[in-house]
Amino acid sequence: MKLLKEFTIPFVGLKIGQHLFEYNIDQAFFEHFEYKEFNNVNIKVDVVFEKKTTLLELHFKTSGFVNINCDLTNEPFNQTIENEFELVVKFGNEYNDENIDILIVPHGTYEINIQQYIYELIVLAVPIKRLHPGVKDGTLHSEILEKLEELSPKLKENKDTNEGIDPRWNTLKKLLTDK
């Protein structure tokens, strides 16, 4: 996959200390990854990049929304996204990203691309079960919800009624109370 230049941080020219990078993520970002689960995206990502003498620390913070379809009704809604992530970048002999929180890059590396970390941070912040808020509080009126209610099994309101019960069971129940 081609790297997007705006997510590449050239850290060689930066002074030791903290630096803030701000990104506005939209639908085009996810089209680059060929991810088609979102209808619309509006997320702000703040990256606090701290350069130290022997390593780099990155603190990612996302906030915004993604427009997705409800799993139950297929109605689109805005899902709020808020997530944070810490990444430590160390220098070593070869590239290694096996650990989730630690990235090892070869000595002599002068820049780091963070687009994959931003992508994963946003996608993993979306709940597994996507339920429209109107379904939870009962304010959403949809044909699908009405059909589901119509087809759902009905519980008997009065369980004490003896309608449809074989009369032989009633005789057996008397044995329990006649002790």
Results as ranks from 00 to 15, higher is better:
108 G>T: 10
3 L>N: 12
59 H>F: 14
168 R>K: 13
54 T>F: 09
63 S>W: 09
102 I>K: 00
1 M>E: 12
44 K>L: 12
26 D>C: 10
58 L>I: 08
107 H>R: 14
130 R>Q: 15
19 H>W: 06
114 I>M: 05
27 Q>V: 05
54 T>V: 11
53 T>F: 00
4 L>S: 08
132 H>M: 03
60 F>S: 08
173 K>D: 08
65 F>K: 13
157 E>K: 11
61 K>E: 15
137 D>S: 02
25 I>S: 06
51 K>L: 06
58 L>S: 06
89 V>A: 00
63 S>D: 12
1 M>I: 11
162 N>P: 00
51 K>V: 02
145 L>Y: 04
132 H>W: 05
40 N>I: 04
42 N>M: 12
67 N>D: 14
41 V>C: 10
83 N>E: 15
174 K>W: 04
114 I>G: 01
78 N>G: 02
53 T>A: 07
92 G>Q: 09
83 N>I: 10
83 N>Y: 11
159 K>E: 15
105 V>F: 01
92 G>N: 09
14 L>A: 05
120 E>K: 10
21 F>E: 04
38 F>L: 10
49 F>P: 04
66 V>N: 08
149 E>P: 01
173 K>Y: 13
177 T>A: 10
38 F>Q: 09
21 F>T: 07
71 D>R: 04
18 Q>T: 10
172 L>T: 01
86 E>V: 06
140 L>R: 00
114 I>N: 01
96 N>I: 02
95 Y>F: 15
72 L>C: 00
58 L>K: 04
60 F>N: 07
117 Y>L: 12
41 V>T: 13
87 L>M: 08
33 F>P: 04
93 N>F: 04
102 I>D: 00
81 I>C: 07
28 A>C: 01
52 K>H: 14
172 L>Q: 06
58 L>E: 05
116 Q>M: 12
22 E>K: 04
100 I>A: 13
51 K>C: 07
62 T>P: 14
134 G>Q: 06
46 D>K: 14
35 Y>H: 14
118 I>W: 07
146 E>H: 09
75 E>T: 10
78 N>C: 06
133 P>Q: 04
59 H>I: 05
168 R>A: 15
176 L>D: 02
93 N>P: 04
107 H>K: 14
111 E>A: 13
44 K>W: 07
3 L>D: 10
71 D>L: 03
162 N>Q: 08
111 E>H: 07
127 P>Y: 11
18 Q>I: 09
90 K>L: 12
153 P>F: 02
78 N>M: 09
35 Y>A: 13
155 L>Y: 10
